[in-house]
């Protein structure tokens, strides 16, 4: 019913062919997916992109077989603390990073294959009351953790064997950091957002906090996903999972904000919103952004209606929709590395791989 209404309501953007279903991961264990990701994996001299799926108690590695079929290679069992999310490490190989905890992240572990012992294993990287974490290029992991007295922001460089080679403390802002985003085009810069709705920028080499700027209340409860450096400006992609619908922007999933680090001034340049009157906004109302992911200039989000919507963030244009399927609502969506498409999962159902 929803699918039938999409085409006339969203006439200028989303077309079915923008997302092409390639395959479905059939998990015989019946466990509910909490996250999906991709990882470079090298075995027998062959380096390929593999899929990683996580349930609350296990993480599975899938390899491509013939005819768009995927087979499970190995499952790490993590029964003591629930898995919350997979943390992508953009250019690492044979390493999977996961966050575990109850309501908040309590520990971060690396899952890997050890050729020395010819076995799969996992090792602890960090524990604490972890508020935000991001994986960066060159096997670096940045996290913020909080005690009653203070906040710690730390970058860990991971070794190929899952240990930590080096730890660098970054200067924390006063407010709690809610998210980090790597800066495309600047290896040593890192962007973050705070609970008080500020954007912060660090120098990862020195640990200095270079700038903190409040982005205003037009964009409440901002979470940064990605940043791009261009012509002396940072273009930061934000989402607002806890925001109410605003009169100025309607039902917004993503904002692109231009931020001038030199002056500390910022300005919104593009909104990616749901078109008013979309059936995606119909009951269960109010339909809002739940969670999302950004790759290159494409943003994908799961809405409370159970649909996945994809936007071209540069134009603020909705370009593809996956309506809730008869078997259930979409619960998570992630871009694969290297432009390998979109992954979408249902809470009690399969994970599907789409070409975009």
């Amino acid at each position: 019913h929803v699918a039938e209404q999409l085409t006339p309501v969203l006439p200028d953007g989303p077309r079915e062919e923008n997302l092409q279903l390639m395959s479905e991961l059939k998990d015989s264990s019946g466990s509910c997916a909490v996250d999906v990701s991709t990882v470079w994996w090298e075995a027998a001299g062959c380096r390929e992109l593999r899929v990683v799926t996580a349930s609350e108690s296990s993480v599975s590695l899938w390899e491509p077989l013939t005819h768009n079929h995927w087979g499970k290679v190995y499952t790490w069992q993590l029964r003591e603390i629930p898995v919350i999310q997979i943390i992508p490490l953009p250019d690492s190989c044979n390493l999977v990073c996961v966050a575990l905890g109850e309501l908040e992240i309590g520990e971060i572990r690396i899952l890997l294959y050890s050729s020395e012992t010819d076995s799969f294993k996992h090792s602890l990287v960090k524990t604490g009351n972890i508020k935000a974490v991001v994986g960066l290029k060159e096997q670096r992991l940045v996290s913020s953790s909080r005690t009653l007295q203070e906040q710690q922001v730390e970058m860990v460089s991971l070794s190929g064997t899952g240990g930590s080679k080096d730890r660098q403390t970054l200067m924390p802002p006063k407010e709690t950091v809610t998210a980090f985003a790597e800066v495309e085009g600047m290896k040593e810069a890192l962007v973050g957002t705070t609970a008080a709705n500020s954007i912060v920028v660090w120098n990862l080499r020195t640990g200095q906090l270079l700038r903190k700027t409040h982005v205003g209340y037009s964009y409440p409860a901002s979470i940064c996903h990605r940043a791009y450096s261009d012509s002396g400006l940072l273009f930061v992609v934000l989402s607002h999972p806890h925001a109410e619908e605003s009169e100025s922007c309607g039902n917004t999933a993503f904002h692109v904000v231009a931020f001038n680090p030199s002056s500390g001034r910022s300005r919104g340049v593009m909104c990616s919103c749901l078109p008013p009157g979309s059936p995606l906004l119909m009951p269960p109302c109010p339909c809002r952004y739940l969670e999302g992911d950004v790759w290159d200039t494409a943003g994908a989000a799961v809405l409370t209606s159970g649909a996945v919507v994809v936007w071209d963030l540069l134009w603020g244009r909705c370009v593809a929709v996956l309506p809730p399927s008869p078997t259930g609502h979409w619960a998570l969506t992630r871009w694969a590395m290297a432009g390998a498409g979109l992954r979408a999962g249902q809470r009690d159902g399969p994970v599907r791989l789409y070409r975009y």
Binding site: S262, R265, S266
Partner: peptide
Amino acid sequence: CSESDLGPISLNWFEELSAEAPP
């Protein structure tokens, strides 16, 4: 965005802010 909106833009902002910020 015009320069008047966002203030003076510097292509070397990262180096300049790193030189000014507390270590």
